[in-house]
């Protein structure tokens, strides 16, 4: 049966798309509204963007988000790279290891966040940037792992055999052949992990300490005081960065296939 022939299918699809994208578009448009009342349009301006640049809390939250995402994504990518290389050859328990590596993708985040919070509290670990980096690294691993793994699976083992045949030992083979061929996958994995950490609210909210507010946490606390055009502007910035980074990750994943 062709679903497109089904009478109301077309209408339903349009409704879903409108429902998905209209709020985002409205938010973006109103971030350029000169009027302070978020729902009354007067004329276009960049005021709110200049305003958020000058806001010290937003600047601190941005800096925290970048440090957190940069550190967690780097650590997660390193671990994912080692895991992908280690699970290349068959060994007993390989399937289990792979499942465990991908599992965090489907675990409910609230459960993991609460569990992590309980763990850190019971261990006496103080909340703050350190705890956040540890937790973010953990949930970013599968996002870094998948593109690297895809790259590795698509790579013929004969390149490495050829390198060894041409007198490169294992280390030189890794440096001159494996790594350069794997590089786009590693970058794609890093980018994806970075976005994932950047956009995370729940885990950061549970684990942040004084002075370690991230952008999503800042936005959440700010809207309790009412929706302001600054929120629209900062949300738009996050939206654009996320779209750019995810596109970059996708592009890197497709590179020189």
């Amino acid at each position: 049966m062709n679903l497109r022939r089904f009478p109301v299918m077309r209408e339903i699809s349009i409704a879903v798309l409108v429902f998905l994208y209209v709020p985002v578009i409205v938010l973006t448009v109103y971030s350029f509204n000169a009027n302070r009342t978020a729902t009354v349009w007067t004329h276009a301006s960049f005021d709110w963007y200049l305003r958020i640049l000058a806001n010290p809390s937003i600047r601190a939250a941005t800096w925290n988000s970048i440090v957190l995402a940069g550190t967690s994504a780097t650590a997660a990518t390193l671990i994912a790279l080692l895991a992908a290389l280690a699970t290349r050859r068959a060994f007993p328990g390989r399937d289990t290891t792979e499942t465990l590596l991908r599992l965090p993708l489907i675990l409910p985040e609230i459960v993991v966040a609460v569990a992590t919070l309980l763990l850190f509290v019971s261990l006496g670990v103080s909340l703050g940037l350190g705890a956040m980096i540890a937790a973010h690294t953990a949930f970013c691993i599968p996002f870094a792992y998948l593109p690297i793994r895809a790259r590795l699976d698509g790579m013929s083992g004969s390149y490495e055999e050829a390198a060894q045949d041409l007198y490169a030992d294992r280390f030189r083979t890794f440096r001159r052949v494996t790594m350069p061929l794997l590089w786009p996958g590693v970058m794609a994995g890093f980018t994806l992990a970075f976005v994932t950490s950047l956009d995370d609210f729940l885990t950061s909210f549970f684990l942040s300490g004084p002075g370690t507010t991230t952008l999503p946490v800042y936005i959440f606390s700010a809207i309790r005081a009412g929706i302001t055009p600054e929120i629209n502007a900062i949300s738009t910035v996050m939206l654009v960065i996320s779209i750019l980074l995810v596109s970059l990750s996708f592009f890197l994943g497709q590179l020189r296939r």
Binding site: S156, S158, Y159, E161, A162, A163, Q164, D165, L166, Y167, A168, D169, V177, P180, L181, R256
Partner: peptide
């Protein structure tokens, strides 16, 4: 002996030329 210690070179069926 590992491949990199053998005075032997291979022409692979798939050529295996390094794409990068």
């Amino acid at each position: 002996a590992p491949p990199f210690h053998r005075p032997v070179n291979t022409v692979f069926q798939s050529y295996a030329l390094f794409p990068h």
